[in-house]
Write a protein that binds this DNA or RNA. Structure first.
Lengths: 282, 282
DNA sequence: CGGTTGATGTAACGAAAATTACAACACCTG
DNA sequence: CAGGTGTTGTAATTTTCGTTACATCAACCG
């Protein structure tokens, strides 16, 4: 009984069918507002049918959707002791902007990271780690205008501990060629944050229709690619700047890498040593 | 838009008839959850008729009750950026390392970021921001095996708000060619963390001897490049993993970018708009 | 004291939402 | 490849809710 709705969601996420899981993701990413809309609105927002939302709620153990909403409200009342006081944004046009700005920035980033990890579904993480660690799979990575650097970053490191890792090169035209050879043994990890790129979406859809396993790392509002992705990890990106921050995405990448590494340590270790030797001789 | 629903309620409270005022009071007392129930439930809770609730909402200036609820939810999302403050549940100790590892990782990363910024020298930051923002300088970036992704990341974004930004391409052999044309009007931003790469060091030394302004972003133990660099920013990189974490470096980059952007906003803004237009026409 | 204004509740209406039943589909298993 | 299981959307049904029209009542004013 002590369990909160968020906990229930995270726990049961693994037992959910795909579309219901999408609903759960939205719920977690936009908690709790997403759950306070009508089930129909929520369904429309995620791109599934209303009954799917209802079934997910039922699977969580609620008698009805209204029951679920009531529970959500109860939790919130308990939680929001004094929401009025802090309502004003603390952007604080304080003393020296050059002195305070970095501090506010770092606080926001650190907070983003904590929230990102707090919202993570253990199931999704485990699945992704397993897929990335399985050497029978071929791994491909790609990102958007800014996030492609992350795809590059992760691919360079992952390549050290396992074979079969590629980073789709910049030229979007070339993606098609590489997509041609993919099938259900391929894993395509996509980074996409707002403003979402249509080219990435097209790629994801084409890949999904070829039974490629599409993984998505995105922002908390979920790229449309979430609809075709097998697993999704959302991260917080808002900071006091005109730009969004991709730092939480990077932390996520590193956490995935750490998990894959420790899960496959016997092999990874050998491989790293071999690589070391190679570097010294060449 | 600036006015929140609470403000409106408090202001108009005096002009309300008795029963409607009772509704308003309940709304304020149990804000905002009271307003997220159905109007009928709210009416019943206060002991008035449903239309009274509706009339009160109309008097506040809302088109309908659903409209009112929508607004309430919007405020909520804006306000509750961290609804999970208490969500740090016992986390079901059973799950083991797969559940706890990411949490420890995120804590370490967040801490790294905070410490990194806490130790920053405002002077160094200001100087670097000024150099990066000065359009008379040409900017070049490069990084090591892993950190080159960061060089790429920052250069892509900086290029949006100013001209003359280049990222030295992967082939180390080509670095020499690009170095050839550099002089005191060039700024070379280098990323280098342990294990420090000799090729980077050679590049830095060559550049410095040509009076190029070398900037360094490195780890807390300082790359040897620090000796020839004009300005240095160190970041924390240790996390519970066999890998080091470059997340704090990224946060640093984003903070620099934010500062440069806001310092040169007049120009940057124009340029971004122009770019936007260009993207739409092409 | 009659008439007017505004507040309030009752009841009826219509729209939207939740729920249920069913059929199509994909996926796995033998 | 057939049969079964489980998932999903469509469509029909029922319920709830928001909304509106109207009647009652109280207070105020000429």
């Amino acid at each position: 009984m002590a369990q909160t709705v968020v906990d229930q969601l995270r726990e049961s996420l693994g037992n959910f069918p795909v579309t219901e899981r999408r609903v759960a993701h939205r719920l977690l990413a936009e908690y709790p507002m997403a759950g306070l809309q009508s089930a129909t609105d929520l369904a429309r927002a995620v791109g599934v049918s209303t009954p799917t939302v209802l079934r997910m709620v039922a699977r969580l153990g609620f008698e009805s959707y209204v029951d679920f909403q009531r529970r959500l409200r109860e939790e919130l009342t308990a939680q929001l002791s004094s929401p009025l006081s802090k309502a004003q944004s603390p952007t604080a046009a304080g003393a020296g902007p050059s002195a305070d700005a970095p501090r506010a920035f770092s606080a926001a980033v650190a907070r983003n990271i904590e929230e990102t990890f707090a919202h993570l579904s253990a199931h999704e993480v485990d699945q992704i780690v397993a897929l990335l660690g399985d050497r029978r799979n071929r791994i491909h990575m790609v990102g958007g205008r800014f996030t492609d650097a992350l795809a590059r970053y992760l691919s360079v490191q992952l390549r050290i501990i396992r074979p079969g890792v590629s980073h789709l090169q910049d030229q979007e035209a070339n993606w098609q060629d590489q997509l041609l050879d993919m099938d259900q043994r391929d894993v395509l990890l996509i980074f996409d944050i707002r403003r979402y790129q249509v080219s990435l979406q097209r790629l994801a859809e084409a890949a999904a229709s070829q039974r490629v396993c599409v993984l998505l790392i995105t922002d908390q509002w979920l790229s449309p690619i979430a609809r075709v992705a097998r697993h999704v990890l959302p991260a917080r990106v808002v900071v006091p700047s005109v730009w969004d921050s991709n730092t939480a995405l990077m932390a996520l990448c590193e956490s995935l890498l750490a998990a894959v590494t420790s899960n496959t340590w016997d092999y990874a270790n050998k491989r790293m040593r071999a690589l070391e030797k190679l570097r010294n001789t060449v």
